[in-house]
Design a binder for these strands. Structure first.
Lengths: 210, 210
DNA sequence: GAATATGTGGACACGTCGTACAGTTTACAT
DNA sequence: ATGTAAACTGTACGACGTGTCCACATATTC
């Protein structure tokens, strides 16, 4: 039900008015999200409402009030801790795509975020509704940044005009996910270099000859 | 524990001897695998030992004897029904890779196999041991076929000598899986064409100019 | 103090899991 | 025929997570 819940029960900034009743304890909320993320990082199989409630020192009932379930909590927690990866740097389109891939490799390599993302992906693969949630919330923002980079590259003549933006993004991002989720093959900066090198000639307006 | 169990309890071909005791009922085994696959296709959330046992008209105890759990059964059943996709056709390396991609799209589009593969992928993303099982049993054979095609392409001068075979395979296969499992974006022959077109200039020995 | 919303803790029925065990069925061997 | 061995059945059990309910305590506003 809740997706983000930014400042529920807290002051309404515009009106300066408070809702009647006991306000939501924000420290509690953060403890809960931290607990969910920590358990997801250590052992995805142990991500359960009971375990999260225990680790956060909170009643299980409270979790039901604010979240749909463990998936919901991990998604919300992860989003807050990976906002940094949505900033885009300077340079050519290929360089900026390269940087974004490096960020993704960083997330999938960091023990604190690797497990949680795996858990989310697992849910997405299994259930259609969860899949659209994962797609919208996790993949969406990243794909939008990449799409913007590609379109700017097309506009300034660096990239070909006739490329399929979505397919290009798939081509460079999907291998990272496949390795992390399915093959278990290592992720590295070299891999990112290689992926970009494979795709570059096919999307550059003036393909390099060699 | 069991991965394939080809002819346990049946005649040992070499010796012509039978193990003592009641032989395994093969019809029963097939009913069980069919049931597992059918439920996985219809509703992955309902893939449970009890449901499979009921649909197959079999005792739950029997399932424990031969398989580790539902995952095991679906994997075994799916492998038997997708053997056809491991045959490789004729043509240039790019054409053969194209055909293999089409086969994969076929599997991920067929309602009978789409759900099961999703279930397997979901388990792989969540658990390390399951991941290596999925990688070895499902992805492995497909990647080996693709790797062979790429290496032959290199050998006969169609493809560049300095390409990273694994990375190339990732680049064209991973987008199919990402769409099926995560974004929910449609799979089509056109997508396969597009993917090949993006990668082709980067791996061809004599890149096409346009 | 009254009203209101958050948070607690215990209880319940439900479903799945993994294991155990006694009993039956089906084959082979003598 | 009788015995042996392994497949298969049916049932039961404890453990665990889920989802929901309810009475009660706590914090804040009006």
């Amino acid at each position: 039900m809740s997706t983000y819940s930014p400042d529920l029960g807290a002051d309404s900034i515009e009106t300066g008015k408070r809702n009647p009743g006991r306000p939501r304890d924000d420290a509690r909320r953060e403890r809960i999200l931290a607990a969910a993320l920590e358990i997801a990082a250590e052992d995805p199989a142990r991500v359960t409402l009971e375990q999260i409630a225990n680790l956060a020192g909170v009643s299980r009932t409270t979790l039901y009030k604010w979240w749909d379930g463990p998936y919901d909590m991990v998604l919300e927690a992860l989003m807050e801790r990976t906002e940094w990866s949505l900033l885009h740097a300077e340079g050519t389109a290929l360089e900026r795509l390269h940087d974004q891939l490096i960020d993704l490799v960083g997330i999938m390599t960091d023990p604190a975020t690797e497990g949680p993302v795996r858990l989310l992906a697992s849910g997405a693969a299994a259930d259609a509704e969860t899949r659209s949630r994962f797609s919208k919330t996790w993949l969406g923002p990243r794909r939008r940044v990449a799409a913007r980079i590609v379109r700017e590259g097309i506009a300034n003549g660096e990239l070909r005009e006739d490329i399929d933006v979505d397919a290009v993004i798939d081509t460079i991002f999907a291998p990272i996910y496949e390795r992390a989720f399915f093959t278990g093959a290592p992720l590295s900066r070299e891999l990112v270099d290689t992926l970009i090198a494979i795709v570059a000639p096919g999307i550059s307006a003036t393909p390099r000859q060699q």
